[in-house]
Amino acid sequence: MPTLVSPLDERSREAQPAAPRLDTLEGKRLALLDISKPQGKEFLDRLQHLLEQRYGVAEIVREIKPTYTKPAPGALLEKLAFVDGVIEALAD
């Protein structure tokens, strides 16, 4: 009876629930996170316009990741901790 040695990462990962959804966008403070793909700015400009005009969003904070190829740096995530919601947007 052969004994095999596990070649896998054996840490158990628990699925994390998504953050609670916002019941309304009205009066909220939102962040739009541009992941720095081409044309991200154009896409988010339009989204910001719609959020402010149609949904009564109180304030929009714009942030940009230094590169879309790496996770957002800790300092950037800390800036996003004070808003009600974040929309992270791709483009291309």
């Binding site: 009876m1 052969p2 004994t3 596990s6 070649p7 896998l8 054996e10």
Partner: peptide, 24 residues
């Protein structure tokens, strides 16, 4: 980091197929 887990295979288990099935 922790040592790797050992799996003792049953007599009739094909080790090659076991590796495929276990996601190795």
């Amino acid at each position: 980091a922790p040592r790797a887990t050992r799996f003792v295979l049953a007599e009739d288990e094909d080790p090659y197929e076991y590796c495929m099935k276990a996601g190795f």
